[in-house]
């Protein structure tokens, strides 16, 4: 009985971690009206690609809350060294810069 409870709790702890790390890409569709005015599509974030180069703790929970829709990301904040534009990320020479709109804002998707 106790063994079962222990296994159960272990599974409860491990399963969400595995499930989250298995996310392929995340579609970010917030701020639709503003995006339409600017003429850019929703962002498709390749989680799998970032996972290859970084450990989870590099981004979560310091830069991004590990929750879908839990981060209200705006371009202003990206420009001000937050979220995607954090130091060492897309506002630095280490990654492609923020002005390549279409690399993240996929049109017609």
């Amino acid at each position: 009985m106790i063994k079962r409870i222990l296994i159960g709790t272990c599974m409860l702890l491990i399963v969400p971690v595995i499930a989250l790390s298995a996310v392929d890409s995340i579609k970010i569709e917030s701020h639709g009206t503003s995006r339409n005015k600017a003429g850019v599509g929703p962002v498709i974030f390749p989680h799998k690609l970032h996972k290859k180069s970084f450990k989870c703790a590099a981004c979560h929970p310091k830069i991004f809350k590990a929750k879908l829709g839990g981060n209200s990301i705006t371009m202003r904040q990206n420009m001000n060294k937050k979220f995607c534009g954090s130091p060492g990320c897309h506002n630095s020479p280490k990654a492609f810069p923020l002005f390549h709109c279409n690399k993240c804002h996929m049109k017609g998707k």
């Binding site: 600017a38 003429g39 850019v40 371009m75 420009m79 001000n80 810069p97 923020l98 002005f99 390549h100 709109c101 279409n102």
Partner: peptide, 30 residues
Amino acid sequence: MTMIGIVEGKWCGRCHNKVAFPLTDCSRCH
């Protein structure tokens, strides 16, 4: 003007990102 057009070399992108300072630093114009 749109940023996408500018990145493709229209408007400000005729010079900036080429002979003038690049578009990397958003807050230099915005």
